[in-house]
Amino acid sequence: MTDVFTAQHVIEYPGGYTRSVGPVIGRFLTGLRDGRILAVRLADGRVLVPPTEYDPATSAAVAADGDHWVEVGPRGTVQSFTWVSQPRKGKHSLDKPFAFALIRPDGADTAMLHVVDCGSADAIRVGSRVAPKWRAERTGSITDIEAWLPLGDGEEPEPAALHVPADDEQPVTGITVPIRLEYTLTAGIATTRYLKGLGEGKIIGGRSPSSDDVYAASRGTDPKSGEATSVEVEVRDTGVITTFCVVNVPGLSELAPEIPYVSAQILLDGANNTFFGLIRGVAVDDVHMGQRVKAHWADELKPDHTSIQWFEPTGEPDADYEIYKDYL
C-alpha cells in the first residue's frame, strides 16, 4: 500500500508546563534574577552548581538556607563544548550559531550546561575563560543568563544590570516551560483503508484470517490473536446502541455538540467490535440501550472521521438484548 495517509501533529500543552521549583532550585533562580550565581557547599566540601535539593553522590538533603550557600563565578572555565550551527527557532535563546558548553564557574567544583556566544567554533576551546552576559529583564530562569561570552586575559566581566527588587517581590517559586514537539504521523494500512471508505460513504473493516470476527476502526489486528485483519470487509452503517452516556460537560472537544449530548457505544451490523459515536436526531431522554441507529453522513464526504457526523435512530424495533449483551 503506497498511499497511506500521513498528517502533521503537534504536542504542546497550552501556555507551557507550570513547574513549581521548591526552595533550593527557587533560591538559585532567585539568585539569577538578582544577577548572582549561587551554589551550595556539600558535606564533602565540594561546591555544587547549579544546586539540587540533594547531594548528587549521597542523596542527602541540601537545606534551602544556611551558610553552605555561597556565590560562585562570575568568571568560569569551559570544560567541554559543542557547536550549534543551526539554532532551533523558539527553543534556543540565541538566533545565531553558538556553543553549548559545560562551564565551571570559579569557586565551584562542578560545571553547568549553558550557552556560549563566541561567534565561531574556532573561538572556543576546552579551557576557554568565559563570563555571563546577563539579561536586563530577569525573571528567575536559567536563561536569565543570555549567554556566556569569551573573556580575554585581564578582562573584567560585564556586571549584571542592577536588579532593584520591588517592595513586595517574593522568591522565585515557579517557572513556565513551553514544550512544543512536531510530528508527521502515519495512519497505517488498516486505518487508511477505513478512512478512505468513509470518504466513499462506506465503512470498511477487516477480518482476521483465522476467525470470523470483523473489526471496523481497529489498529489493524484482531487483538485476540494479534493477527493482521487483512481481509477487507464492508460493514453496514446501521447498528445498535449497546450502551451510552449523556454528557453535560462543556468543551471536551471542538467537535462536541452543545450539552447535553449523547455519546454511545455502537455495534455496527456486520462488525464484532463497538466504537463510540454521537447520537443526535432524538431527544437525549429518549436514547436507550438496544436502540437501532444509522449513520448520518456529511453532505460532502471526506476520508476522515467527519464523514459520519453522528448516528440517529432508524425507528426500527429495538434489538433484542441477547444480540448485544456480549458486547458490554
Partner: peptide
C-alpha cells in the same frame, strides 16, 4: 491524535456507558 476517532466525551465519557451497562 490524527486519524484516531475523536474523543468527544472525555474520560468520564469512556466509563459512564460501562456504568450504565452495569446498572442495566
Amino acid at each position: 491524535m490524527p486519524f484516531a476517532a475523536p474523543l468527544v466525551a472525555g474520560a468520564g465519557g469512556y466509563f459512564a456507558p460501562l456504568i450504565r451497562a452495569y446498572m442495566y
